[in-house]
Design a protein around this nucleic acid. Sequence first.
DNA 1: ACAAAACATGAGGGCACCCTCGACTTAACC
DNA 2: GGTTAAGTCGAGGGTGCCCTCATGTTTTGT
Lengths: 184, 184
Amino acid sequence: MVTASRPLRADAARNRDKLLVAAAELFAERGLDVPLEHIARRAEVSIGTLYKHFPTRDDFVAQIFPQRLAALDVIGEKALAEPDPWRAFAGYLEDLYALQAEDRGLNDVLARDLPNAPEVVSACHRGAGHAGVLMDRALAAGVLRADYTIADLATLTRAMAQVIRDSPDEWRRFLSIYVEGLRT
Amino acid sequence: MVTASRPLRADAARNRDKLLVAAAELFAERGLDVPLEHIARRAEVSIGTLYKHFPTRDDFVAQIFPQRLAALDVIGEKALAEPDPWRAFAGYLEDLYALQAEDRGLNDVLARDLPNAPEVVSACHRGAGHAGVLMDRALAAGVLRADYTIADLATLTRAMAQVIRDSPDEWRRFLSIYVEGLRT
DNA sequence: ACAAAACATGAGGGCACCCTCGACTTAACC
DNA sequence: GGTTAAGTCGAGGGTGCCCTCATGTTTTGT
């Protein structure tokens, strides 16, 4: 699907990289809403050049987050390898939110309806898939509240995004209370 | 403390009232961040007049929210009248968030660090006082997780503000799960 | 009815962000 | 090394919000 366009000119490739690096840093530090001008400034590139390479904020998102979201698969696999269904499920949540807590941008990405980047969307779906399996296992084992659904998990994720934003050191406590309420 | 200034001129009093009504409506509908220009427009008054009466957004907040926050006292008293310590505590939370769910502005007020309005701050403190008593009772009865604190409640409140914003119909479910985790 | 004081008005300046486009610069290829 | 397509630059136009102030209007008290 990658339209094999002619390779970029050397300076263009360099600028593109600098932009990606700057954007990745700023998304992680300040969240998804950093002004594009700040990204250009940190990349030491003009705003016009930024728009040439990434006409849309979502173009940045599409380039940056898929690899970060790969971590989702990693923790998913890890959880699936855990034999105890409850520990698997609860551990998954803990790992997931630890990820969010480390990266303000990722926190934003997972908390919003958004983003128009298909790659990001599909990564999220894979994540939801893992979570679904873990939930089913826990349900089958009778350790998870019987009426719990994926939609509840989405709600939790947005709530956790908020908790992480305002008390980055207390989210584990909040989560553990909620998770306790989930157990049967 | 009300500096008994000369009474307002008739037209001025009328405009002030229209502004308060408009602001109250818009805060409730759209949240605390509505542009002040929108308030002026709905009040059918110029932006200059708005600034004359309420130089600051917080001046609106200070006039509007104290009476709404009175509802906090009502539900506090109601909960204190409930003999069962667990039902009192859990019922208080339910009533509190029901209040937030009905009023976007109130939701914002309770969710932020903010506001520079002393009357609002003191109403919140009274609310926290009620909550504290309810928590102590529940703790004494051994029905509430022993390490629970007021700070946790503040975190919960911000999280609930978020949940209410994105799923106004699902917040009770989320709350009930969390509250379940609180019980011993 | 008049003067003075109180008030209302809205154009406009400031700011932060968005995005575009024409003039310049540079890498790439012969 | 000259040509040219590709790329860079940043001033500047657009938007939405904030807030102020000179000018014009209304109320009030006499």
